[in-house]
């Protein structure tokens, strides 16, 4: 590092510390800051209640993914650009993984499509959780308290159990639909009575536990990580530490959990096909 850069960084750090010192004094006290912890903004219309934050963020993410896909699609070349080669590398490694796991050749491509779609969406959603931004803070009864700026990260849709449970149930239904298609209805029904009819309740519980653990794993990691980061950041009054926490819980844990979700989806589908 050149001497000029060192001086520049030192001055920047001093300005940061001074600004932090004055900004930290205006933070709310502990009880008020933690009173909204773990609560969401919920809108109730008739018998249905919605999480507007989840809906808005998933719409934004979907738009982002579609925009990216279209922009890659538009400039497809034989000699790939950087964007295209990233996408190709991702798709190739996933296709390889699915091909190695799924025994039936007919179901390789559908499984690949499902798993890769889940991975891309969940990964981007977890990445959102590592960037400080606008978050919707709610009271215990679900009314909106305030729209907070830069005290917390953007709210990832995967920090909401509704999103994760939807995907886990989707994988569950898809795996059984594939099983019926591959083995026929009779063999599928018979597979519930393996190795003998006494084990039927065990098989049912075992199958139902799959989507539950599948969704709760992702939800717990992202939502729990978010709450932990919020508590730690408040305790150090947002001094320096949140950056590393957001990096760890957002980028590191987020990537691994997205990968685990996709791999488990492949494993559950292929387990039904054998």
């Amino acid at each position: 590092m050149a001497k000029k850069e060192k001086i520049f960084l030192t001055v920047l750090f001093v300005i940061f510390v001074v600004a932090w010192f004055f900004a930290a004094r205006s933070l709310p006290d502990t009880k008020e800051a933690f009173s909204t912890l773990g609560h969401r903004w919920v809108v109730t219309i008739g018998n249905f209640s919605f999480n507007p934050a989840t809906i808005i963020m998933s719409a934004v993410l979907t738009a982002l993914i579609v925009w990216f896909a279209v922009s890659v699609r538009k400039e497809m070349k034989i000699v790939p650009s950087r964007k295209q080669s990233i996408v190709e590398w991702l798709f190739e490694s996933f296709y390889q993984m699915v091909e190695d796991t799924v025994p039936d050749e007919r179901f390789v491509k559908p499984t690949f499509v499902v798993a890769t779609t889940l991975f891309i969406y969940i990964w981007l959603s977890n990445m959102i959780g590592s960037i400080p931004g606008i978050s919707f803070v709610g009271f215990e009864d679900g009314t909106l308290k305030e729209i907070a700026l830069f005290t917390d990260t953007w709210q990832p849709p995967t920090a909401d159990l509704n999103t994760n449970l939807t995907y886990a149930l989707m994988v569950f239904v898809i795996s059984h639909a594939f099983a019926i298609k591959a083995k026929g209805l009779k063999a599928w029904l018979k597979s519930w009575f393996e190795p003998n009819p006494v084990m039927l309740p065990m098989n049912v519980i075992g199958e139902l536990a799959k989507p539950l653990s599948h969704s709760l794993r992702l939800f717990g990691n992202i939502a729990g990580g978010g709450i932990l980061v919020f508590i730690f950041s408040y305790l150090v009054k947002y001094f320096l530490l949140p950056v590393f926490l957001w990096g760890f819980f957002g980028i590191f844990v987020g990537t691994i959990q997205a990968l685990v979700f996709a791999i488990l989806a492949i494993a559950y589908i292929s387990a039904q096909l054998t």
Binding site: R217, G220, N221, V260, I263
Partner: peptide
């Protein structure tokens, strides 16, 4: 790391319950 993430899940469940 992948195996860690799967082994960790019961701990994450208890974190959820604690919250």
């Amino acid at each position: 790391l992948l195996a860690d993430a799967v082994a960790e899940s019961t701990g994450i469940y208890s974190l959820l319950i604690a919250f």
